[in-house]
Amino acid sequence: MKILRVLNNNAVVVHHGDREKIIFGPGIGFQKGKNDPVNQKKIEKIFSMEEETPKFEQLLKTLPIEVIEVGEEIISYAEGVMHLPLSDHIHISIIDHLAFALERIKQGFTIENKLLHEIKALYQEEYSIGVWAIQKIKKDLGVELPEDEAGHIALHLHTAKLQTGSMEETMHRTSLIQELIQIVEDRAGLELADRGMSYHRLVVHLNFALSRAEDGKVFDDMDPEMLELIQTKYEKAYAVAYELADYVKQEAGLPFPLPEIGYIALHIQRILSNQSIS
């Protein structure tokens, strides 16, 4: 395996199989040039992003090596914790994002994440990795990033899971859930993010309800008598749940069947009951 291009001391481009690939390893490009052999013992990662490769090469050439290294360590840590490979594009998205976030902090800007509460509830594992990442950045780079940044990192990691859709789709789903939570908050007169498990359960159920609706799965796991009882005994909660279903139909074109609305009403009723005894 021979080097085609040296990107920096720790990354080189080689011809491997029938395509060009980027190889990472400590010192693998140090004092090396075209056609020099690759030190096999130094190889840590080999991957190809096909049409994305030129953009990644540009990042490797222009960004500080310490930012690239911490980004790669975050990716490796995430793959180890989640026990699955992430898409190759994560090498661009995480490193590019971190460089931008660090530059914003350096310039005195505030990093905010309006979806933080929903991200923490929906993507718990990814968020915990995001927390580890900002601690790692503080230790290695001496830059303290806010908790909001852990949420941003979590979104990138979730999107990089294979077959989970694009960042745009992830953001749209999370934003829609936030809008639904806002409706419940307005009707209940409280901030649900401070309500612990009741909030968490509602967010998770809404996420699954949206997935079922997108997949065209009919959710009818509720006895008709139980549904009727919910409609009469928990009238306010059911009315709010029905309003959520109407909002989803208008904004996303997704139908919630009555049993789904009934279960959502039970989650809302739990929140209303907790409110009455708090």
Rank of each mutant, 00 (worst) to 15 (best):
L4F: 10
L7N: 00
A11S: 03
G17Q: 08
K21M: 13
I23W: 01
P26V: 09
G27Y: 02
F30Y: 14
P37D: 07
K41G: 14
M49H: 05
F56T: 01
K61R: 15
P64N: 11
A78R: 05
V81Y: 07
D88C: 05
I90L: 11
I94S: 00
H97A: 09
F100K: 14
E103D: 14
E112C: 06
E118S: 05
E118N: 11
K120G: 01
L122Q: 12
E125S: 12
Y127H: 13
S128I: 01
I129C: 03
Q135P: 00
I137R: 01
I137P: 01
K138T: 05
K139M: 12
L141M: 06
L141T: 09
D148N: 15
D148E: 15
L157H: 01
H158Y: 14
G165S: 11
M167V: 07
T170Y: 00
R173Q: 13
R173V: 13
S175D: 09
I177F: 14
Q178Y: 05
L180M: 15
V184C: 07
E185L: 11
G189I: 07
L190G: 04
L192S: 07
L202R: 02
V204H: 04
V204C: 04
N207K: 15
F208T: 07
L210V: 09
L210K: 06
A213N: 04
E214A: 11
D215L: 07
F219H: 07
F219W: 10
D221H: 09
D223Y: 08
E225P: 00
L227F: 06
Y242F: 06
Q250D: 09
L254H: 08
P257T: 09
L258V: 06
I261A: 04
I264E: 01
H267Q: 09
I268L: 10
N274S: 12
